[in-house]
């Protein structure tokens, strides 16, 4: 059986509802008190992950304002709002280069260098792609370094004792 929820809205306790009924009912805010059988005490909707999609989704959103960017594309949105370009991760790329992994670090630096030019010519998708690639190469470098480190220590300890 589906879990049943009680809520308090406008000072009045209501329930039990299933999640689906709550979604139809609407009007949930992050601070709406919620309880279900199994909770020791009331909590609020924002503490429950299953409520994430329901909070604030009460009234159907006005479809009037057609966005000029693809929905769900934060970078294009940021660009439309005149915000800063995506991160270059240059600091991390340089640290990766000098800390463990020269080659992958240099790849990350080269991708980092492509972010701003793409942004300046208005190619936000390319700027985002370069930023993400730089980030991924940084992660690859550090993960590679972390994998390498214990082997290296083990090896040098063995060669010291031999």
């Amino acid at each position: 059986m589906e879990r049943q929820y009680w809520i308090i809205q406008d000072g009045i306790q209501a329930g039990p509802y299933t999640l689906g009924q709550l979604a139809q009912r609407g009007g949930l805010t992050p601070d709406t008190p919620v309880w279900y059988d199994g909770l020791a005490d009331w909590t609020v909707a924002s503490n429950l992950p299953e409520f994430a999609g329901l909070i604030g989704g009460a009234a159907p959103r006005p479809a009037a304002q057609a966005p000029s960017y693809a929905p769900g594309d934060p970078y294009a949105r940021a660009a439309a709002d005149g915000q800063t370009p995506p991160p270059t991760y240059l600091v991390w790329a340089i640290l990766a280069t000098v800390c463990c992994c020269v080659l992958t670090g240099i790849v990350a630096i080269i991708y980092a260098s492509k972010v701003t030019p793409a942004w300046q010519r208005g190619d936000y998708a390319a700027a985002r792609a370069a930023s993400e690639k730089a980030g991924w190469w940084v992660i690859i470098s550090f993960v590679g370094g972390l994998i390498w480190a214990p082997f290296s220590v083990l090896f040098s300890m063995m060669s010291n004792t031999l």
Binding site: V34, V44, S46
Partner: peptide, 14 residues
């Protein structure tokens, strides 16, 4: 039968 909720004494928002 479904348990009934405890008395509401205010909930702490994490």
């Amino acid at each position: 039968p479904a348990a009934s909720p405890p008395p509401y004494r205010g909930a702490v928002r994490r």
